[in-house]
Design a binder for these strands. Structure first.
Lengths: 339, 339
DNA sequence: CTGAAAGCGCTTACAG
DNA sequence: CTGAAAGCGCTTACAG
């Protein structure tokens, strides 16, 4: 292994000078800098990450804690992961990926051992077991997803309340007076997936205000159950003219259900989902949707995290809870209800 | 930060004794061991990973190089990633996730800096730019996907040739004499996705042997293009009674296409895909398929990698190229052709 | 069974 | 502008 000592020797300078020439942390004569650069190139030198981490207490690694639950839609998680990973790399950080089901334990492991300079927690639950560990850790963290208690935490999430209101208002404006909302499965809520009821409760409240009938149900996470559910909902509520989907599996299943029933959107039924544009493109969902912006949320979380990591002042600034305003992507699946 | 020095002081022993008590690498009196364990618990000690890595030259981290290409199906990649990650953790390794598009550069960075003890490369291409870097690296690596040149590389992949033959034979046995094979988009092949033509060529050859007409085409990666393609293929080859899909997007799009044409499988058309069971469950694909076993391949790759990492003998053993035999998962979508 | 010391490869005050 | 030295927190021969 080629060390900075080898570089120094080849360049005819001390190790400290070689180090400074590389870091640029003090002025170096052009000539020496050239000799060091040449030596680095010639020997193919790269600093040993462990040694550097030991000396600087900086690993340039961010821990990414993903949580894959049984009845949640895994591909959606991937979008967040990529948003975090890409942004981290832009800022010169690598990603330590943790997918263990026992997230609290994993988080303690990587923070205690100083493998990471900070962490991003994905899919944060209402009463997330990882939060006490994060609060006790010396490294800063950023969350994607809103927990019950945000104190001393940087939190980023879609404004699901606003999303719920937006769905209802959009339909109401078009003239719809009876709607169905299919949320994630109840398990997701029980596990602490607050975004489910945040959207649902806000939608129900807004429906009340607007005088719209809204049938809200928890859905299923897989086929064929979710397809059956959609069918039975449409049977049960023949007067409903609009469908709101906060459930990826339901959105993916809907085209065949509509087809089977001989319905088309928006002529027979108006539809709005809540998922990412990438998801829509991959599965070619023709439904207008509230963009869930996973890449954007991942990016925001990493940016804030790195700010805290790198600046001592930022370290002590008040924590932020930031909601991304939902945006409706119009794919033409809503219109006035059939007369 | 609590160090092993703190532990040693609290336990009233030397740092080396504390270290040995923790590692178990030499015999320690029961009493001392107890005192050290108590001190560790009391102080909440965890070894600093960077310091340990520097001392031992072992990071206990495996680099995972994922490659997301424009027109490949991202959720499929996730399955491989999780297989690798879960197995690594079982074997006490953490995962450094790399998703940069310039995989060769990223690989050089993490190996040169000794951030990892070994690497797993996913989605390996025929002439993968990462391979020269891997061969030059001091760490061992394992590939998922078959490159053109496997020399001094451990390689794991599905036996796509056998998969192609199996699809054809299965249909032939049922009495089909004219089939359509939809592969991945041509871009995937151009980029070096050898599995596409490995399956296709073997299928064509087997069809020739069996006296079956096989129309093989490259597909599309997104809707609505892939749906249109399926429709036009069925229009163009009205005599075809079976459909073979080596293309996730096509598989995902097929149910609505069949529906729209008023066809059902297997009564009107027999269908076999090639994808993972997880994929089938998530999208509820009712089609029989050749299981692509991403979790199993990821697991095999990590196992072999860790063997090489941990045993000096294994380090020098001949490299392996291992093909997983395809298995057909019968979901009832094939039968004798309609008469 | 235990301890004192060297060393892993860096960075960074301290001195000049 | 440059160098000699200390130190980051471990592990592991070397000695006893």
């Amino acid at each position: 292994m080629v060390t900075i000592g080898d570089v120094a020797r080849a360049a005819g300078v001390s190790r400290s000078t070689a180090s400074y020439a590389l870091s640029g942390k003090r002025s170096i004569s052009a000539e020496v800098r050239q000799r060091v650069d040449d030596a680095v190139r010639e020997l193919g030198y790269t600093a040993n990450a462990g040694a550097r981490a030991l000396a600087t207490s900086e690993t340039m690694v961010i821990g990414l804690l993903a949580q894959f639950h049984e009845d949640e839609f895994a591909p959606a998680m991937l979008q967040y992961m990529l948003g975090v990973s890409d942004t981290a790399r832009e800022l010169d950080y690598d990603i330590l990926l943790v997918t263990e089901s026992d997230g609290a334990r994993a988080l303690r492991r990587i923070t205690d051992s100083r493998m990471v300079d900070g962490v991003v927690l994905l899919n944060v639950a209402e009463d997330d077991k990882r939060l006490p560990v994060l609060r006790a850790a010396p490294q800063p963290g950023a969350l994607v997803g809103l927990p019950g208690d945000c104190s001393s935490l940087d939190v980023f999430d879609l404004d699901f309340e606003e999303a719920g209101r937006m769905m209802v208002d959009h339909m109401h404006r078009l003239g719809h007076r009876e709607l169905i909302l299919v949320s994630q499965p109840e398990h997701v809520v029980e596990r602490g997936g607050a975004y489910v009821w945040r959207l649902q409760d806000a939608a129900l409240e807004q429906a009340r205000i607007r005088g719209v009938r809204l049938h809200a149900v928890f859905g299923e996470s897989k086929q064929p159950a979710v397809g059956q559910l959609l069918n039975s909902l449409l049977d049960t509520h023949p007067g409903a003219t609009g469908l709101l989907l906060n459930n990826e599996a339901a959105a993916a299943a809907l085209p065949s259900v509509l087809h089977a029933r001989g319905l088309s959107a928006p002529a027979d039924l108006s539809v709005i989902g809540r998922y990412s544009d990438e998801f829509a493109r991959t599965f070619s969902l023709p439904f207008s949707s509230i963009e869930s912006a996973p890449d954007r949320l991942g990016r925001m979380a990493v940016r804030q995290l790195v700010r805290r990591i790198e600046s001592p002042e930022a370290r002590n600034q008040p924590h932020v809870v930031r909601f991304v305003s939902p945006e409706l992507v119009d794919r033409g699946s809503t219109a006035a209800p059939p007369t």
